[in-house]
Design a protein around this nucleic acid. Structure first.
Lengths: 129, 129
DNA sequence: TGCTTATATTCGTTTATACTCATATAATAC
DNA sequence: GTATTATATGAGTATAAACGAATATAAGCA
């Protein structure tokens, strides 16, 4: 992959937030949607861009698509990955997103429950300190 | 500086080529212009973007502005800088640009000589293997 | 089979970025 | 002072990227 394409892939706040989530866990689209507060189409598009740049990969499990970091990317660009993780750890939005993800995991809700009760879930997540 | 702004600054081919030149030497605008084959306004704007992101810095010497890497950037983001240098070393366009820069240095031409005889200089540079 | 859920994609719109041409500024030399 | 050289900037345009709404696909489930 061209160097410039890698930088472009990282050069968007939404994608940085997605990568911050995926450096810790694998996650399906509706979870990412909920945590970032973006719509499904937008989430899917950003994931597609990261996938086509070779930064993330996915596993299909039934109707869900679980996105995760691409191991080959980490192997090929360890310095960049380490740099990214270090910076993400310090970034307030990234920290907050991970807190929301932990809350969401506690609730133990499936994608459909989240969707059905999205407003309430978002409200709850909004209270996370 | 926001992480995303740093990635955006690196996320352009012209700026990658500029940074590749500056990781080896300091250089004035007209030299960068000539090597990259872009116009003055365009070169100046890209340099400004890199400067305002804190990646490069400059020294004014008489009417020339010599751009160079910003030492604080290298200190603050050593992993990113190392990653960039490693990748640039492997990139064919970057390698070629440095060859052109070496040719240009050999000629020992000032900015005005380059400008006066730009077509010829560019032709010469085009022959570099 | 038809219905629901999860994700991807198309289309049109908006926003951001890059570019060119022309002009402005700033330093130097005469 | 004027002329020249180097660089920066303004204005307009072109290109690319991001977005939302609606639709398509694909996998489960009744």
């Amino acid at each position: 992959m061209e160097l410039v394409e890698i930088f472009k892939a990282f050069g968007d706040e939404t994608r940085i937030r997605i990568l911050n989530l995926l450096r810790n866990d694998e996650m399906c689209v509706c979870e990412i949607e909920t945590i970032l507060g973006i719509n499904q189409s937008n989430a899917s598009r950003h994931l597609n861009k990261l996938k086509s740049t070779g930064i993330i990969d996915y596993d299909k499990k039934a109707q869900w698509v679980y996105y995760k970091m691409d191991e080959n990317f980490i192997k090929e660009y360890p310095l960049l990955y380490e740099f990214f993780c270090k910076e993400a750890e310090k970034d307030s939005k990234c920290i907050y997103d991970l807190k929301k993800w932990n809350e969401l995991k506690k609730c133990n809700l499936g994608c459909k429950e989240i969707e059905k009760d999205k407003e309430n879930v978002l409200k709850q997540l909004g209270r996370v300190q």
